[in-house]
Simulated assay, not measured.
Amino acid sequence: MSSIEIKQQRPRVDDILERYKHQIGEDLPGYRNHVYRTITYAMHFVDNDAQYEPFIETAFAYQDIGLWTDHQLAYLEPSEAVALADNAKFGWGFDVQALQGAIHWHHKISPYTGPHQTVIEACRKADWIDASKGMLRKGLDKRIIADVEAAFPNLGFHDTLLRLAKDYGGSTLVGGIKVTLGIVKW
């Protein structure tokens, strides 16, 4: 069995999330752990190449943030806008097309091909693993996924998504349909 590198501390992520802690509120611990899990998987898919780490950390910190900043079930574009604004504001210098793409395509069902394919595809696969609670493994051994989930417990993150679907959509069913239509890409 292969292993996966698990980093318990990611100051870049925590700094970004700190800026939005009042908007995210009580959902922050669950969202933070979702972000940490997805970063862990994505870094594994790029062979832990350090050149990608700041970018992947940033993209995943913002991937779903539009749920809280804009109260939108179709949250990809709002999340992209917040990420791009902060990229400019703080002078991080991330390629705009890459940052927007990593967020925009992270729910794409089929493999991503196009500009920045390596990192965007790593992010896409990572999020599908976590969104499916490890049912979709994208080539990872289930014991590796269990190790990552043990390091960063769910803390109700998937329940939060259901609650927000109901809150923003009027019912879990209607919200679920709206969120699926708004974020899943073919």
Results as ranks from 00 to 15, higher is better:
51 Q>T: 12
95 D>Y: 02
112 Y>F: 08
43 M>Q: 13
62 Y>V: 02
42 A>Q: 10
78 P>V: 07
116 H>P: 01
69 T>E: 09
106 H>M: 04
93 G>Y: 03
50 A>V: 15
116 H>I: 00
102 A>I: 00
110 S>R: 15
103 I>W: 00
96 V>W: 00
80 E>M: 03
112 Y>N: 04
42 A>R: 08
40 T>I: 09
117 Q>T: 07
74 A>L: 04
95 D>E: 11
47 D>I: 05
50 A>P: 11
107 H>E: 03
92 W>Y: 13
50 A>W: 08
57 E>V: 07
117 Q>M: 06
102 A>Y: 00
90 F>Y: 14
47 D>E: 13
100 Q>M: 09
45 F>M: 06
38 T>E: 10
45 F>K: 07
54 P>R: 12
115 P>G: 12
31 Y>A: 12
48 N>P: 08
45 F>C: 06
65 I>L: 11
70 D>K: 13
106 H>D: 01
45 F>W: 08
52 Y>Q: 07
77 E>N: 12
78 P>R: 03
89 K>A: 12
88 A>G: 04
54 P>L: 03
111 P>Y: 05
116 H>N: 03
36 Y>W: 05
64 D>S: 14
60 F>L: 14
63 Q>D: 15
81 A>P: 04
44 H>V: 06
103 I>N: 00
78 P>K: 03
100 Q>Y: 09
43 M>W: 03
45 F>S: 05
56 I>D: 01
79 S>K: 06
94 F>P: 01
117 Q>S: 05
102 A>M: 01
30 G>H: 11
114 G>T: 04
88 A>T: 10
69 T>L: 09
104 H>L: 04
116 H>Q: 01
56 I>Q: 01
111 P>L: 05
51 Q>D: 11
80 E>C: 06
106 H>K: 06
113 T>F: 04
106 H>S: 03
39 I>M: 08
86 D>V: 09
